[in-house]
Computed example of a mutant assay.
Amino acid sequence: MIIVKVGGGEGINYDAVCDDIAQLWREGQQLIFVHGGSHRTNQVAEALGHPPQFVTSPSGYTSRLTDRATLEIFQMVYCGQINKTLVERLQRRGVNAVGLSGIDGRIWQGPRKKVIKVVENGRIRVLRSNLTGKVTQVNHSLLQNLLHAGCLPVLTPPAISFDGEAMNVDGDRAAAATAAAFRADELLILSNVPGVLRQFPDENSLISQISADQIECVSKEFAEGRMRIKLLGAREAVTSGVRRVVLGDARGRQPILRALDGLGTVIIPTQAEEAA
């Protein structure tokens, strides 16, 4: 089983992504495809007069501030435009794709954060109206039934809380939770950078391999912006039984096939985790 997560930043080559998925699907490879949509969401939010706001936690992770209006824009873009466009592209390539959000069938479920702490002008503030959460349960049986029926799940945030509220969740960590639920062989997290860079934005400074016990140090010393959350998701995956995570580049040709060949930052379990 391979879980493929493709981000929503500028420059993503979605046609090349869909070409690779179609090739692997024809070869009999089981896949689940998870996607984002941040860049397009920002554009739509600006056009609708509700520009995006981002907050940073005391531990250094950046996330979208999600009120009810933002969540509705998020759903319109992620679950509507992007999800159905990707399903159409896959159907055109002969893949019987089914597009779903994490809300549908409670595919992704977890607790909503009642409060979050953010750093603003050097001070810590507490926010209580943010509709965000974390995926802690994956509806494995529903996804497995789709796969058994010959369908490719194409998944996107948001998720559903235990209280039945839609909530924004990080797509990389949702993909990691999905990979853990299936004990996937591979989790590929592809974006518009080639992986973790030792000297951002120099793409020639790629760090080619990291073990799980090195992630915290690498994240603090080298990771910029959203790469910190990608590393957090990678650590959650490999410590939950996923054999390998690759942080790769989705801008060029054959992005999935290149990631499967190890082009990017490869993250592997520590020796103790591999032995277990």
Rank of each mutant, 00 (worst) to 15 (best):
R244I: 07
G80E: 06
E273Q: 13
F200S: 10
A45C: 07
I116M: 14
G37Q: 01
V193D: 00
Q81I: 04
G99F: 09
R226M: 11
D163Q: 15
M1P: 08
V87P: 00
G60M: 14
E274W: 15
R26Y: 08
R68S: 09
A69K: 14
I207P: 06
A259D: 00
W108D: 03
L147E: 03
E10T: 08
L147R: 12
R93Q: 10
Q75C: 13
S208M: 13
R93A: 10
A234G: 12
E216T: 06
V77S: 02
L231G: 06
G133P: 09
V138S: 07
E10R: 12
R64F: 01
K114F: 04
T66H: 02
L100I: 05
L188P: 10
M167K: 13
R64I: 08
I207S: 11
S240M: 14
L197K: 07
S38I: 10
V242T: 13
A179V: 06
G150R: 04
H50Q: 10
P194Y: 00
A176C: 08
E10A: 05
R228P: 02
L24W: 00
F162Q: 03
E273T: 11
G171R: 07
F162H: 12
Q53C: 08
I160F: 03
S63N: 06
M167G: 03
A179E: 10
A16S: 11
N121W: 12
R173N: 07
F182I: 02
E186T: 07
V196K: 02
N83P: 04
